[in-house]
Write a protein that binds this DNA or RNA. Structure first.
Lengths: 206, 206
DNA sequence: AACGAAAGTGACGCATGCGTCATCTTTTGC
DNA sequence: GCAAAAGATGACGCATGCGTCACTTTCGTT
């Protein structure tokens, strides 16, 4: 018989994956607590049982860790939110589905959201991107699609997108203060708000 | 004849005021550009023609500079926004007046707003306060007053307050990208959004 | 078992920030 | 004008972070 815990692949590869993940995990906490700017590579390494030099085997610097962290989150949440939105056929569904997918994700992955909340300004400055990755751009595009399909009234898609992201973000923060987070209540509130707002904007556009 | 520029008080006092202001000005730029966390006292001093030691005659550390900066902005904007809101007698006026006062302030004081935008997460973490000082708390209170007075439907004042702050902030960011900033357009958009949203929330509350 | 490659380790040299304080400069009160 | 007080200055000692690299340990291969 060979060795016991042969989950997958060689030990070498498994350790590499584990170390990389350990660094990302530690960085998540550090960035959320200290903020990206004040955090140091040492702060991250210290929350790990790795040595300083090992860190540099995985990432060239602090920035690339944040990048990796964001790539993880955006890939996941973007797909889920967009899919949910496109499933909607009315304004109501478009809005409610999107927010629900978003808030369910937040409720699952609080730590990652803390990083976003704590470092939104930095992320914006670093990557010239809005708070949640390319979320705002996606949303604006989906809104345009909705308008073209006749589900939504003719509104300023970009302005609506930033308003939805801004309000959605803050209402999400508030939701996460509850334990457990009340996803339904948050979705209902924010959906009603924007459904009503959309109607009024449509009325005024005439 | 004595010396020429005897604007007011003794020279001692005038220099002190000027130095303090120079530090605050430099800090505004530094915090907006590098972010509070990454900024150092030296970064601030370097943008000044003062020496390191002089900084410590005015502020004990970096944090107290940010505090002073925020005290300035919150005092000013809070008063203006609240006064504008209380002047409104209907839901429409309540909302539009508040946002207008807010956006006019932003348009006047872009640099200070940059600091807030860049460091919102840090400020929240440091002072356990929402993005714009105690703005959200004020807003929630004003909403409750509006509900009590019958101007606004019965809604969750806290949720509405965070949504208004979040959306208002992002729409403000977008407004400031224009040159000159189109305050009227921003006010009309965000007002329509929340007036419609408020109606819908009122309908659902029945 | 034994060897070579891959990865882990942490001390090192360098850079920079911190807050202080002895010293110099300017202002004020007389 | 002059002495004393207030304030400005920047070099200093200490602390910490950075990225590297010579060395050690671990893993995979034969």
């Amino acid at each position: 018989m060979s060795t016991v815990p042969n989950t997958s692949a060689g030990k070498r590869e498994r350790t590499k994956a584990a170390n990389r993940q350990a660094i990302l995990d530690a960085a998540t906490d550090v960035f959320a607590e200290l903020g990206y700017g004040a955090a140091t590579v040492r702060d991250i390494v210290r929350r790990t049982d790795l040595a300083t030099g090992t860190f540099y085997n995985y990432f060239p610097d602090k920035e690339s860790v944040l990048r990796a962290l964001l790539d993880e989150v955006t890939g996941e949440v973007r797909v889920r939110v967009r899919a949910a939105r496109l499933r909607g056929e009315s304004a109501e569904e478009f809005i409610a589905n999107g927010f629900r997918a978003y808030y369910e994700f937040l409720a699952e992955d609080r730590r990652l959201f803390s990083v976003l909340q704590r470092n939104a300004g930095t992320i914006r400055a670093m990557f010239d991107e809005p708070v949640l990755g390319a979320g705002t751009d996606d949303l604006a595009e989906d809104i345009r699609t909705g308008i073209a399909a006749g589900h939504l009234p003719e509104v300023d898609a970009d302005a609506l997108a930033v308003a939805m992201m801004g309000a959605g973000f803050e209402v999400g923060v508030r939701m996460l203060q509850g334990d457990p987070p009340d996803v339904d209540a948050a979705v209902e509130f924010i959906s009603a708000l924007f459904i009503g707002g959309l109607q009024e904007l449509g009325r005024r556009a005439d």
